[in-house]
Nucleic acid binder design. Structure first.
Lengths: 250, 250
DNA sequence: CTGAGAACAACTCAATGTGAGAACAACCTA
DNA sequence: TAGGTTGTTCTCACATTGAGTTGTTCTCAG
Protein backbone atom coordinates (compact mmCIF):
# COMPACT_ATOMS: atom_id res chain seq x y z
CA UNK A 1 0.00 0.00 0.00
CA UNK A 2 1.58 3.29 -0.99
CA UNK A 3 0.85 6.65 0.50
CA UNK A 4 -1.82 7.63 -2.03
CA UNK A 5 -3.73 4.40 -1.60
CA UNK A 6 -3.47 4.81 2.12
CA UNK A 7 -4.93 8.28 2.04
CA UNK A 8 -7.73 7.18 -0.27
CA UNK A 9 -8.67 4.31 1.99
CA UNK A 10 -8.49 6.42 5.10
CA UNK A 11 -11.84 7.02 6.72
CA UNK A 12 -11.91 9.73 9.38
CA UNK A 13 -15.17 8.29 10.71
CA UNK A 14 -13.19 5.36 12.05
CA UNK A 15 -12.08 7.49 14.95
CA UNK A 16 -14.01 8.17 18.13
CA UNK A 17 -15.80 11.48 17.80
CA UNK A 18 -13.93 14.22 19.60
CA UNK A 19 -14.71 17.91 19.41
CA UNK A 20 -12.01 20.54 19.85
CA UNK A 21 -12.85 23.98 21.17
CA UNK A 22 -10.71 27.04 21.78
CA UNK A 23 -11.38 29.07 24.91
CA UNK A 24 -9.83 32.33 26.03
CA UNK A 25 -8.93 33.62 29.47
CA UNK A 26 -8.78 37.31 28.58
CA UNK A 27 -7.43 39.62 31.27
CA UNK A 28 -7.42 43.38 31.47
CA UNK A 29 -7.08 46.01 34.18
CA UNK A 30 -9.92 48.42 34.84
CA UNK A 31 -9.97 50.96 37.59
CA UNK A 32 -7.08 49.33 39.32
CA UNK A 33 -8.65 45.87 39.41
CA UNK A 34 -7.95 42.78 37.35
CA UNK A 35 -10.88 41.90 35.12
CA UNK A 36 -11.77 38.79 33.13
CA UNK A 37 -13.92 38.45 30.01
CA UNK A 38 -16.89 36.16 30.58
CA UNK A 39 -19.98 35.27 28.60
CA UNK A 40 -23.33 34.06 29.87
CA UNK A 41 -24.43 30.75 28.48
CA UNK A 42 -27.81 30.91 26.78
CA UNK A 43 -28.43 27.18 26.39
CA UNK A 44 -27.81 23.91 28.18
CA UNK A 45 -25.66 22.51 29.49
CA UNK A 46 -24.83 25.03 32.21
CA UNK A 47 -27.51 27.39 30.90
CA UNK A 48 -27.29 30.72 32.68
CA UNK A 49 -23.83 29.99 34.03
CA UNK A 50 -20.82 32.12 33.20
CA UNK A 51 -18.25 30.72 30.84
CA UNK A 52 -15.08 31.64 29.04
CA UNK A 53 -15.53 32.96 25.53
CA UNK A 54 -14.81 30.18 23.09
CA UNK A 55 -16.15 27.84 20.49
CA UNK A 56 -15.32 25.12 18.05
CA UNK A 57 -12.15 25.45 16.10
CA UNK A 58 -12.83 25.97 12.41
CA UNK A 59 -11.63 23.37 9.91
CA UNK A 60 -8.98 25.56 8.32
CA UNK A 61 -7.74 27.69 11.17
CA UNK A 62 -4.87 27.22 13.53
CA UNK A 63 -5.63 26.94 17.25
CA UNK A 64 -4.29 30.40 18.09
CA UNK A 65 -6.19 31.86 15.13
CA UNK A 66 -9.37 30.36 16.48
CA UNK A 67 -8.71 31.92 19.86
CA UNK A 68 -8.07 35.28 18.23
CA UNK A 69 -11.31 34.98 16.28
CA UNK A 70 -13.30 34.19 19.42
CA UNK A 71 -11.68 37.10 21.18
CA UNK A 72 -12.53 39.42 18.29
CA UNK A 73 -16.13 38.24 18.25
CA UNK A 74 -16.65 38.81 21.95
CA UNK A 75 -14.83 42.11 22.27
CA UNK A 76 -16.02 43.49 18.95
CA UNK A 77 -12.43 44.43 18.22
CA UNK A 78 -10.41 44.18 15.07
CA UNK A 79 -7.39 45.50 13.28
CA UNK A 80 -4.66 47.25 15.19
CA UNK A 81 -6.26 47.08 18.60
CA UNK A 82 -6.78 43.35 18.31
CA UNK A 83 -3.20 42.92 17.19
CA UNK A 84 -1.85 44.64 20.28
CA UNK A 85 -3.46 42.05 22.54
CA UNK A 86 -1.03 39.41 23.70
CA UNK A 87 -2.31 35.90 23.09
CA UNK A 88 -0.64 32.62 23.99
CA UNK A 89 -1.67 29.04 24.49
CA UNK A 90 -2.41 28.17 28.10
CA UNK A 91 -3.09 24.46 28.02
CA UNK A 92 -5.55 21.80 27.01
CA UNK A 93 -8.32 20.36 29.13
CA UNK A 94 -9.74 17.04 28.13
CA UNK A 95 -11.17 15.12 31.07
CA UNK A 96 -13.61 12.60 29.55
CA UNK A 97 -16.59 13.92 31.48
CA UNK A 98 -15.93 17.64 31.35
CA UNK A 99 -18.79 18.13 28.88
CA UNK A 100 -21.90 16.00 29.39
CA UNK A 101 -22.74 15.91 25.70
CA UNK A 102 -19.66 14.34 24.23
CA UNK A 103 -15.91 14.22 24.40
CA UNK A 104 -14.67 17.78 24.11
CA UNK A 105 -11.05 18.81 24.35
CA UNK A 106 -10.67 22.50 25.06
CA UNK A 107 -7.47 24.27 24.10
CA UNK A 108 -7.38 27.23 26.46
CA UNK A 109 -5.56 30.46 25.64
CA UNK A 110 -4.47 33.42 27.71
CA UNK A 111 -4.81 37.04 26.62
CA UNK A 112 -3.47 40.30 28.08
CA UNK A 113 -5.34 43.38 26.88
CA UNK A 114 -5.20 47.09 27.65
CA UNK A 115 -8.37 48.62 29.01
CA UNK A 116 -11.03 48.07 26.35
CA UNK A 117 -14.53 49.41 25.85
CA UNK A 118 -17.32 47.20 27.09
CA UNK A 119 -18.10 44.40 24.66
CA UNK A 120 -20.46 45.62 21.96
CA UNK A 121 -23.94 44.38 22.70
CA UNK A 122 -25.29 42.15 19.99
CA UNK A 123 -21.90 41.34 18.59
CA UNK A 124 -22.77 37.84 19.64
CA UNK A 125 -25.95 36.26 20.88
CA UNK A 126 -24.34 35.69 24.26
CA UNK A 127 -23.79 38.70 26.43
CA UNK A 128 -20.18 39.31 27.32
CA UNK A 129 -18.80 41.41 30.12
CA UNK A 130 -15.60 42.25 31.95
CA UNK A 131 -15.93 40.89 35.48
CA UNK A 132 -13.55 41.75 38.32
CA UNK A 133 -11.57 38.67 39.22
CA UNK A 134 -12.41 39.36 42.85
CA UNK A 135 -16.09 38.72 42.03
CA UNK A 136 -15.43 35.29 40.54
CA UNK A 137 -16.17 33.37 43.72
CA UNK A 138 -19.83 34.32 43.60
CA UNK A 139 -20.26 33.15 40.02
CA UNK A 140 -21.37 29.78 38.81
CA UNK A 141 -18.89 28.74 36.16
CA UNK A 142 -19.61 26.27 33.39
CA UNK A 143 -17.58 23.12 32.72
CA UNK A 144 -14.11 23.15 34.28
CA UNK A 145 -13.68 26.83 33.56
CA UNK A 146 -12.98 27.68 37.21
CA UNK A 147 -9.89 25.53 36.99
CA UNK A 148 -8.88 26.99 33.63
CA UNK A 149 -9.17 30.52 35.02
CA UNK A 150 -7.13 29.58 38.06
CA UNK A 151 -4.39 28.21 35.81
CA UNK A 152 -4.57 31.33 33.65
CA UNK A 153 -4.20 33.66 36.61
CA UNK A 154 -1.22 31.76 37.92
CA UNK A 155 0.35 31.79 34.47
CA UNK A 156 -0.22 35.55 34.26
CA UNK A 157 1.41 36.15 37.65
CA UNK A 158 4.35 34.04 36.61
CA UNK A 159 4.73 35.64 33.16
CA UNK A 160 5.10 39.09 34.67
CA UNK A 161 8.19 37.86 36.45
CA UNK A 162 10.30 36.91 33.49
CA UNK A 163 8.73 38.59 30.46
CA UNK A 164 7.92 42.23 29.66
CA UNK A 165 4.27 41.33 29.02
CA UNK A 166 3.01 43.63 31.76
CA UNK A 167 3.29 46.36 29.14
CA UNK A 168 0.53 44.64 27.18
CA UNK A 169 -1.95 45.72 29.82
CA UNK A 170 -1.09 49.35 29.02
CA UNK A 171 -1.28 51.66 26.05
CA UNK A 172 1.76 52.15 23.83
CA UNK A 173 3.18 54.86 26.10
CA UNK A 174 3.09 54.60 29.86
CA UNK A 175 4.79 55.72 33.04
CA UNK A 176 6.79 53.57 35.45
CA UNK A 177 4.05 54.10 38.03
CA UNK A 178 1.42 52.75 35.65
CA UNK A 179 3.62 49.75 35.00
CA UNK A 180 4.05 49.22 38.71
CA UNK A 181 0.27 49.36 39.14
CA UNK A 182 -0.03 46.47 36.67
CA UNK A 183 2.33 44.35 38.76
CA UNK A 184 0.60 45.28 41.98
CA UNK A 185 -2.80 44.46 40.54
CA UNK A 186 -1.84 41.12 39.05
CA UNK A 187 0.30 40.02 41.99
CA UNK A 188 -2.16 41.40 44.52
CA UNK A 189 0.21 43.28 46.81
CA UNK A 190 2.05 46.61 46.85
CA UNK A 191 5.63 47.02 45.67
CA UNK A 192 8.31 49.43 46.79
CA UNK A 193 8.11 52.37 44.32
CA UNK A 194 11.78 53.27 44.47
CA UNK A 195 13.10 49.75 44.09
CA UNK A 196 10.62 48.98 41.30
CA UNK A 197 11.71 52.08 39.43
CA UNK A 198 15.38 51.21 39.75
CA UNK A 199 14.78 47.66 38.65
CA UNK A 200 12.64 48.41 35.61
CA UNK A 201 15.15 50.89 34.23
CA UNK A 202 18.09 48.58 34.89
CA UNK A 203 16.77 45.52 33.04
CA UNK A 204 18.01 45.78 29.44
CA UNK A 205 15.27 46.08 26.84
CA UNK A 206 12.34 46.21 29.24
CA UNK A 207 11.33 49.82 28.59
CA UNK A 208 12.82 52.65 26.57
CA UNK A 209 12.31 56.33 27.12
CA UNK A 210 10.22 58.35 24.70
CA UNK A 211 11.83 61.55 25.95
CA UNK A 212 8.42 62.98 26.72
CA UNK A 213 6.56 63.39 29.99
CA UNK A 214 2.90 63.34 30.97
CA UNK A 215 0.96 66.58 30.36
CA UNK A 216 -0.10 66.78 33.96
CA UNK A 217 1.03 65.39 37.29
CA UNK A 218 -0.95 62.77 39.14
CA UNK A 219 -4.56 63.50 40.04
CA UNK A 220 -3.55 64.09 43.65
CA UNK A 221 -0.34 65.95 43.02
CA UNK A 222 3.25 65.08 42.25
CA UNK A 223 5.50 65.96 39.34
CA UNK A 224 4.92 64.97 35.71
CA UNK A 225 6.13 61.45 35.04
CA UNK A 226 8.46 60.43 32.23
CA UNK A 227 6.92 58.35 29.48
CA UNK A 228 8.25 55.02 28.28
CA UNK A 229 7.33 52.46 25.67
CA UNK A 230 7.98 48.72 25.62
CA UNK A 231 11.55 47.76 24.75
CA UNK A 232 12.63 44.97 22.45
CA UNK A 233 13.42 42.33 25.07
CA UNK A 234 11.28 39.23 25.03
CA UNK A 235 12.64 37.93 28.31
CA UNK A 236 13.66 39.87 31.40
CA UNK A 237 17.25 39.29 32.51
CA UNK A 238 17.48 39.44 35.40
CA UNK A 239 13.86 38.63 36.19
CA UNK A 240 11.55 40.67 38.37
CA UNK A 241 10.82 38.11 41.03
CA UNK A 242 7.76 38.42 43.22
CA UNK A 243 8.44 38.02 46.93
CA UNK A 244 8.27 34.38 48.01
CA UNK A 245 5.02 33.48 49.66
CA UNK A 246 5.50 31.99 53.10
CA UNK A 247 3.82 28.72 52.21
CA UNK A 248 6.18 28.17 49.29
CA UNK A 249 9.22 28.18 51.51
CA UNK A 250 8.86 24.62 52.72
CA UNK B 1 -20.80 26.48 13.21
CA UNK B 2 -21.11 28.35 16.46
CA UNK B 3 -21.98 27.06 19.85
CA UNK B 4 -25.68 27.88 19.63
CA UNK B 5 -26.18 25.75 16.59
CA UNK B 6 -24.30 23.06 18.35
CA UNK B 7 -26.55 23.29 21.35
CA UNK B 8 -29.68 23.12 19.22
CA UNK B 9 -28.75 19.75 17.78
CA UNK B 10 -25.56 18.22 18.98
CA UNK B 11 -25.27 15.08 16.98
CA UNK B 12 -21.53 14.42 17.15
CA UNK B 13 -21.54 13.24 13.56
CA UNK B 14 -22.41 16.77 12.45
CA UNK B 15 -19.01 18.07 13.41
CA UNK B 16 -16.01 18.34 11.21
CA UNK B 17 -13.99 15.28 12.03
CA UNK B 18 -11.12 16.15 14.35
CA UNK B 19 -8.83 13.57 15.85
CA UNK B 20 -6.95 14.15 19.09
CA UNK B 21 -3.66 12.42 19.71
CA UNK B 22 -1.32 12.45 22.67
CA UNK B 23 2.41 12.56 21.99
CA UNK B 24 5.28 12.36 24.43
CA UNK B 25 8.67 14.06 24.44
CA UNK B 26 10.40 11.67 26.83
CA UNK B 27 13.86 12.69 28.00
CA UNK B 28 16.48 10.76 29.90
CA UNK B 29 20.21 10.96 30.48
CA UNK B 30 22.46 8.14 29.33
CA UNK B 31 26.21 8.17 29.54
CA UNK B 32 26.26 11.87 30.20
CA UNK B 33 24.15 12.78 27.17
CA UNK B 34 20.53 13.83 26.89
CA UNK B 35 18.45 11.23 25.08
CA UNK B 36 14.98 11.30 23.57
CA UNK B 37 12.54 8.46 23.00
CA UNK B 38 11.65 8.06 19.31
CA UNK B 39 9.76 5.48 17.30
CA UNK B 40 10.11 4.62 13.65
CA UNK B 41 6.90 4.96 11.70
CA UNK B 42 5.90 1.76 9.99
CA UNK B 43 3.06 3.17 7.88
CA UNK B 44 2.23 6.27 5.86
CA UNK B 45 2.25 9.14 6.20
CA UNK B 46 5.95 9.72 6.91
CA UNK B 47 6.66 6.00 6.68
CA UNK B 48 10.19 5.29 7.80
CA UNK B 49 10.58 8.66 9.49
CA UNK B 50 11.21 9.07 13.18
CA UNK B 51 8.36 10.28 15.34
CA UNK B 52 7.44 10.90 18.92
CA UNK B 53 5.65 8.03 20.65
CA UNK B 54 1.97 8.75 20.70
CA UNK B 55 -1.45 7.80 19.45
CA UNK B 56 -5.12 8.55 19.59
CA UNK B 57 -6.56 9.39 22.94
CA UNK B 58 -8.94 6.71 24.16
CA UNK B 59 -12.61 7.61 24.73
CA UNK B 60 -12.54 7.31 28.49
CA UNK B 61 -9.08 8.45 29.44
CA UNK B 62 -7.77 11.82 30.43
CA UNK B 63 -5.11 13.43 28.24
CA UNK B 64 -2.29 12.85 30.70
CA UNK B 65 -3.45 9.26 31.22
CA UNK B 66 -3.23 8.73 27.49
CA UNK B 67 0.29 10.08 27.47
CA UNK B 68 1.22 7.78 30.36
CA UNK B 69 -0.25 4.82 28.52
CA UNK B 70 1.72 5.61 25.36
CA UNK B 71 4.87 5.99 27.41
CA UNK B 72 4.26 2.66 29.12
CA UNK B 73 3.65 0.93 25.80
CA UNK B 74 6.86 2.21 24.23
CA UNK B 75 9.15 1.76 27.21
CA UNK B 76 7.62 -1.52 28.33
CA UNK B 77 7.49 -0.09 31.81
CA UNK B 78 4.83 -0.31 34.45
CA UNK B 79 4.13 0.01 38.14
CA UNK B 80 6.58 1.79 40.38
CA UNK B 81 9.14 2.66 37.73
CA UNK B 82 6.50 4.23 35.51
CA UNK B 83 5.16 6.19 38.44
CA UNK B 84 8.53 7.77 39.15
CA UNK B 85 8.62 9.33 35.68
CA UNK B 86 7.62 12.98 35.71
CA UNK B 87 4.94 13.75 33.14
CA UNK B 88 3.37 17.09 32.35
CA UNK B 89 1.48 18.66 29.50
CA UNK B 90 3.69 20.55 27.08
CA UNK B 91 1.24 22.11 24.65
CA UNK B 92 -1.11 21.43 21.78
CA UNK B 93 -0.28 21.53 18.11
CA UNK B 94 -3.13 21.88 15.69
CA UNK B 95 -2.07 23.53 12.43
CA UNK B 96 -4.71 22.50 9.87
CA UNK B 97 -2.23 20.83 7.54
CA UNK B 98 0.06 19.16 10.05
CA UNK B 99 -1.33 15.71 9.14
CA UNK B 100 -2.22 15.05 5.50
CA UNK B 101 -4.96 12.59 6.40
CA UNK B 102 -7.28 14.78 8.40
CA UNK B 103 -7.42 17.43 11.05
CA UNK B 104 -5.39 16.15 13.95
CA UNK B 105 -4.75 18.09 17.13
CA UNK B 106 -1.82 16.69 19.06
CA UNK B 107 -1.58 17.30 22.78
CA UNK B 108 2.13 16.97 23.46
CA UNK B 109 3.52 15.97 26.85
CA UNK B 110 6.95 16.15 28.40
CA UNK B 111 8.50 13.35 30.46
CA UNK B 112 11.65 13.20 32.61
CA UNK B 113 12.87 9.68 33.26
CA UNK B 114 15.86 8.13 35.00
CA UNK B 115 18.09 5.95 32.87
CA UNK B 116 15.90 3.12 31.63
CA UNK B 117 16.63 -0.15 29.88
CA UNK B 118 16.26 -0.11 26.11
CA UNK B 119 12.65 -0.41 25.00
CA UNK B 120 11.57 -4.04 24.84
CA UNK B 121 11.61 -5.17 21.24
CA UNK B 122 8.23 -6.29 20.01
CA UNK B 123 6.34 -4.43 22.72
CA UNK B 124 4.85 -2.47 19.87
CA UNK B 125 4.81 -2.84 16.12
CA UNK B 126 6.99 0.25 15.84
CA UNK B 127 10.55 0.02 17.04
CA UNK B 128 11.43 2.49 19.75
CA UNK B 129 14.85 3.71 20.79
CA UNK B 130 16.60 6.29 22.93
CA UNK B 131 18.38 8.70 20.60
CA UNK B 132 20.95 11.27 21.73
CA UNK B 133 19.49 14.72 21.26
CA UNK B 134 22.72 15.73 19.56
CA UNK B 135 21.92 13.25 16.77
CA UNK B 136 18.50 14.74 16.05
CA UNK B 137 19.67 16.99 13.24
CA UNK B 138 20.44 14.03 11.03
CA UNK B 139 17.00 12.48 11.46
CA UNK B 140 13.93 12.94 9.33
CA UNK B 141 11.11 13.72 11.73
CA UNK B 142 7.45 13.15 10.98
CA UNK B 143 4.76 15.84 11.14
CA UNK B 144 5.77 18.93 13.16
CA UNK B 145 7.62 16.83 15.70
CA UNK B 146 10.87 18.74 15.25
CA UNK B 147 9.11 21.80 16.55
CA UNK B 148 7.48 19.90 19.39
CA UNK B 149 10.84 18.51 20.47
CA UNK B 150 12.41 21.96 20.33
CA UNK B 151 9.66 23.31 22.57
CA UNK B 152 10.06 20.35 24.91
CA UNK B 153 13.79 20.86 25.26
CA UNK B 154 13.36 24.55 26.02
CA UNK B 155 10.67 23.72 28.58
CA UNK B 156 13.00 21.19 30.18
CA UNK B 157 15.85 23.69 30.42
CA UNK B 158 13.51 26.20 31.95
CA UNK B 159 11.92 23.77 34.41
CA UNK B 160 15.29 22.90 35.92
CA UNK B 161 15.63 26.52 36.94
CA UNK B 162 12.65 26.84 39.19
CA UNK B 163 11.55 23.29 40.04
CA UNK B 164 13.37 20.35 41.64
CA UNK B 165 12.53 18.14 38.64
CA UNK B 166 16.19 17.53 37.83
CA UNK B 167 15.98 14.82 40.49
CA UNK B 168 13.56 12.93 38.26
CA UNK B 169 16.41 12.14 35.90
CA UNK B 170 18.13 10.28 38.74
CA UNK B 171 17.39 7.32 40.96
CA UNK B 172 15.84 7.83 44.38
CA UNK B 173 19.23 8.46 45.99
CA UNK B 174 21.90 10.55 44.33
CA UNK B 175 24.92 12.71 45.00
CA UNK B 176 25.22 16.45 44.46
CA UNK B 177 27.68 15.78 41.67
CA UNK B 178 25.19 13.55 39.87
CA UNK B 179 22.58 16.27 40.23
CA UNK B 180 25.01 18.80 38.84
CA UNK B 181 25.68 16.52 35.89
CA UNK B 182 21.94 16.61 35.10
CA UNK B 183 21.98 20.40 34.97
CA UNK B 184 25.14 20.48 32.91
CA UNK B 185 23.73 17.97 30.45
CA UNK B 186 20.36 19.63 30.00
CA UNK B 187 21.72 23.16 29.93
CA UNK B 188 24.68 22.18 27.81
CA UNK B 189 27.47 23.89 29.71
CA UNK B 190 29.56 23.29 32.82
CA UNK B 191 28.71 24.74 36.21
CA UNK B 192 30.97 25.75 39.07
CA UNK B 193 31.03 22.70 41.40
CA UNK B 194 31.49 24.65 44.61
CA UNK B 195 28.81 27.21 43.95
CA UNK B 196 26.37 24.55 42.75
CA UNK B 197 26.92 22.54 45.92
CA UNK B 198 26.33 25.56 48.13
CA UNK B 199 23.23 26.56 46.22
CA UNK B 200 21.57 23.13 46.16
CA UNK B 201 21.98 22.66 49.90
CA UNK B 202 20.76 26.17 50.67
CA UNK B 203 17.46 26.02 48.78
CA UNK B 204 14.83 24.78 51.23
CA UNK B 205 13.26 21.47 50.31
CA UNK B 206 15.34 20.78 47.23
CA UNK B 207 17.28 17.82 48.61
CA UNK B 208 17.50 16.15 51.98
CA UNK B 209 20.36 14.07 53.30
CA UNK B 210 19.99 10.34 53.68
CA UNK B 211 22.91 10.27 56.10
CA UNK B 212 24.66 7.70 53.95
CA UNK B 213 27.50 7.98 51.49
CA UNK B 214 28.43 6.18 48.31
CA UNK B 215 30.19 2.83 48.70
CA UNK B 216 33.12 3.93 46.61
CA UNK B 217 34.69 7.18 45.51
CA UNK B 218 34.45 8.36 41.93
CA UNK B 219 35.78 6.11 39.19
CA UNK B 220 38.81 8.35 38.86
CA UNK B 221 39.37 9.03 42.51
CA UNK B 222 38.04 11.40 45.11
CA UNK B 223 36.31 10.81 48.42
CA UNK B 224 32.95 9.08 48.88
CA UNK B 225 30.09 11.47 48.22
CA UNK B 226 27.16 12.03 50.54
CA UNK B 227 23.81 10.74 49.34
CA UNK B 228 20.65 12.80 49.10
CA UNK B 229 17.06 12.23 48.05
CA UNK B 230 14.53 14.68 46.62
CA UNK B 231 13.01 17.03 49.17
CA UNK B 232 9.39 18.05 49.41
CA UNK B 233 9.59 21.42 47.65
CA UNK B 234 7.68 21.71 44.40
CA UNK B 235 9.21 25.05 43.50
CA UNK B 236 12.76 26.26 44.10
CA UNK B 237 12.98 29.49 46.12
CA UNK B 238 15.24 31.10 45.24
CA UNK B 239 15.55 29.61 41.77
CA UNK B 240 18.69 28.16 40.24
CA UNK B 241 19.06 30.50 37.30
CA UNK B 242 21.12 29.51 34.31
CA UNK B 243 23.63 32.11 33.19
CA UNK B 244 22.10 34.60 30.73
CA UNK B 245 22.99 33.86 27.16
CA UNK B 246 24.58 36.80 25.40
CA UNK B 247 21.87 37.02 22.78
CA UNK B 248 19.16 37.30 25.40
CA UNK B 249 20.64 40.48 26.82
CA UNK B 250 19.15 42.80 24.22
C1' DC C 1 53.02 -0.04 48.41
C1' DT C 2 53.37 4.45 46.94
C1' DG C 3 52.79 8.71 44.46
C1' DA C 4 49.99 11.34 41.23
C1' DG C 5 45.88 12.93 40.08
C1' DA C 6 40.78 13.47 40.82
C1' DA C 7 37.06 15.31 43.06
C1' DC C 8 33.98 16.12 47.35
C1' DA C 9 33.18 19.57 50.53
C1' DA C 10 34.16 23.59 52.87
C1' DC C 11 35.95 28.09 52.80
C1' DT C 12 37.21 33.18 51.35
C1' DC C 13 36.49 37.45 49.06
C1' DA C 14 35.01 40.77 45.78
C1' DA C 15 31.18 42.19 42.93
C1' DT C 16 26.54 42.52 42.28
C1' DG C 17 21.67 42.72 43.47
C1' DT C 18 17.90 43.59 46.86
C1' DG C 19 14.92 45.57 50.64
C1' DA C 20 13.97 49.45 53.30
C1' DG C 21 13.94 53.98 53.95
C1' DA C 22 15.16 59.12 53.20
C1' DA C 23 15.50 63.20 50.42
C1' DC C 24 13.82 66.45 47.33
C1' DA C 25 11.59 68.80 43.87
C1' DA C 26 7.38 69.15 41.06
C1' DC C 27 2.76 69.22 41.15
C1' DC C 28 -2.27 69.04 42.64
C1' DT C 29 -6.21 70.64 45.43
C1' DA C 30 -8.15 73.53 48.71
C1' DT D 1 -0.26 80.16 49.25
C1' DA D 2 -0.11 75.94 52.29
C1' DG D 3 -0.28 71.15 52.83
C1' DG D 4 -0.24 66.84 51.10
C1' DT D 5 1.02 63.61 47.21
C1' DT D 6 3.98 61.60 44.01
C1' DG D 7 7.99 60.73 40.64
C1' DT D 8 12.67 60.10 40.90
C1' DT D 9 17.09 59.57 42.81
C1' DC D 10 20.02 58.34 46.79
C1' DT D 11 21.97 55.85 50.70
C1' DC D 12 23.04 51.94 53.32
C1' DA D 13 22.76 47.38 55.26
C1' DC D 14 22.27 42.84 53.92
C1' DA D 15 21.89 38.75 50.93
C1' DT D 16 23.30 36.33 46.92
C1' DT D 17 26.50 35.20 43.36
C1' DG D 18 30.85 34.19 40.69
C1' DA D 19 35.40 32.82 41.00
C1' DG D 20 38.94 30.82 43.11
C1' DT D 21 41.47 28.25 47.10
C1' DT D 22 42.20 24.75 50.56
C1' DG D 23 42.16 20.33 52.80
C1' DT D 24 41.06 15.82 52.66
C1' DT D 25 39.77 11.28 50.84
C1' DC D 26 39.85 8.29 47.47
C1' DT D 27 41.26 5.51 42.88
C1' DC D 28 44.48 4.08 39.72
C1' DA D 29 49.01 3.27 37.58
C1' DG D 30 53.34 1.71 38.17
Amino acid sequence: MNEQEFLAAYDPRDHPAVAVTVDVVALTIREGALHLLLVRRGAPPFEGHSALPGGFVHPDEDLIAGARRELAEETGLGGERLRRIHLEQLGSYGAPDRDPRMRVVSVAHLAFAPDLPDPAAGSDAEEALWLPVSALASRQLAFDHARVIEDGLERARSKLEYTPLATRFLDAEFTVTELRAVYETVWGHPLHPGNFHRKVLSVPGFVESTGASTERGGSRGGPRAKLYRAGDARLLHPALLRPAREETVR
